[in-house]
Design a protein around this nucleic acid. Structure first.
Lengths: 184, 184, 184, 184
DNA sequence: GATGAATGAGCCTTCATTCAT
DNA sequence: CATGAATGAAGGCTCATTCAT
């Protein structure tokens, strides 16, 4: 593995486990078995490492969103599918997601990315629910409010899943929960 | 106000606004208009301040839980009431809640308290749903899973409300959302 | 002596001897027998120490200039007196002068102060030479050019005196040199 | 241009502009469009680069001195000619001169070279003034002191010219100034 | 109880230098 | 000859904590 990727992977692991502040450059260098100076050959600053991690996550997310959008265009989309796909996305990006969730109170760029997540998910849910209502599949609920609710549920479950792994995993049941609430 | 309480209040405000790490003892002393040494006359360490804040929150929470328990005993309880009451509780303890939510990744005692919140809310929701089902008011859903779900929704909404105040507040609509899913 | 002054004095000695870059906070702390942290209780940064030193020097210089101005107003001033007084001023502020002379290539505030020295000395020499010419004591030379020359001589001698102490001290002879050149 | 010369030229430019400390090997390599390692193939250390620059300057200076010596031997020399020639020499070696003047407080070898400059100029001025006095052209002044003075003036003007380019250039007027002081 | 100066470990970062390719 | 990744010592600075007054 290239050094840059080694640093990135080590940093991901470390930040997701002990948080950004306690993942010091000194510890990072030790864990990756490199010298501290080497970090700065590949990244401008400690924050820059985080930025790279977040950029990767943003790209992954944009793929996910694009995938959902395509399904939506082909009329193959439903809010429960969005939820299921999103849970898969989180599964595939666990470490990065934890990092974003634990740093958006610390770092503007992290907060910005989180806002992108929220906004995109909400918008796509809105579109999807609108379609569902028009088709007569979903109850005639307030579109905006209910997409916000589902989005909030999604993020609540994600966080619970990532930060409280001992907690019962109820993600599939949660989809049913929402179906009962929205399907006619 | 006593010095100890002054420190506590100032710390609450500061930690909830800038986070635990950036709330330095130096800034804290300046903001409270006392000397840094004085802090250590009343608290063993910076973490100890946080512990006191969390202890206060824990006490408030136990009152809330006790209140709900009493209603439950008098058969006056429903899951949507628990949600509504909890949102009121959060409203009354905004600052402390933000602190808990922003530190449970950093501090064991904070994580412990969060676990208490989760467990208690889950248990009481379980009891309440059980009663509801027995009475024939609620659908015959899996009790444990569904209480976990509602608990998760509750915390998701709380976090969203506290950390993304610009986001639409959908807490009352969320209660309806859950009612549709669970009420017969 | 107060700690702040101790730091200031130690820093003066050290910077004047080894230069700003090699006067590290670590060495400074050791020399002053204090901890590195203490430095930052009294000064905002390492540069801030230098700023304080320069500010002191600027004040001393303004006293000197004021003294010369008063003599000028009382018609008791001559260019050779300005030179002699200035050499006394340098003698009284040796260490600070060395610091200014060795940092004005490094630091804007130091360069600014040096410019103040140059400008003030030049202006006062101009006034003084003008008077001398009007009185018929001095030759009818170009005022501005000749004040610049004398100022340059003054600074050349100062630097030589401070940085090459083994070099013959010719400051008094230099005054005669200038007198021969300018007096009728 | 050979790599070694490329490094030398780039270093000259950079050091004279930003100073020795801020001319890092990294920046130097970037500016010269070579790798950092290459520098160490041609020079033993960063200081070694400076040593080469100074050696070049020393050689140029010895040519200048030799030229003056020859004129002196042919009886064609006067102190004002030495001054004028020296100013030409500085003009031709501006960059190197700036480097010497900005590093003799930092580096022994630079200080040594500066001493060579001072000594040689002083000696030749002494010889020249002696001749002038013997011939009856110059006033009967103290030879050593007055050569030191002229030498000091020369270096003061040089420094002023190089470091304060906005300052009026009074080098030719300065020669007249000295002539008035020394010529009968 | 209160003060605030002092501490010192530790943080992020820079940079001259080395070395395998 | 050249490369550029890697090194590690050192630098400036922060901050929780202690202690004499």
């Amino acid at each position: 593995m290239k050094t840059k990727d080694l640093i990135l992977e080590t940093a991901k692991e470390m930040i997701s486990q002990v948080g950004f502040h306690r993942a010091t450059t000194s510890n990072l260098a030790k864990a990756a078995n490199i010298s501290e100076g080497t970090i700065y050959r590949h990244f401008e600053s400690k924050e820059d490492i985080l930025l790279h991690i977040l950029a990767e996550l943003e790209e992954s997310f944009s793929y996910y969103i694009e995938g959902v959008r395509q399904k939506l265009d082909k009329d193959e989309c439903s809010f429960d599918m969005i939820m299921a796909d999103y849970f898969t996305f989180v599964e595939d990006n666990e470490v990065d997601m934890k990092i974003m969730l634990s740093t958006y109170g610390l770092l503007d760029s992290s907060k910005r990315l989180m806002a992108v997540f929220l906004k995109n998910l909400e918008l796509i849910l809105e579109d999807c629910i609108k379609v569902g209502i028009r088709k007569g599949i979903l109850r005639d609920v307030a579109v905006e409010e209910n997409s916000t609710i589902i989005m909030t549920i999604i993020f609540g479950l994600t966080r619970m899943h990532l930060y409280w792994p001992n907690q019962r995993d109820v993600r599939t049941e949660a989809i049913d929960f929402c179906r009962r609430s929205l399907l006619k």
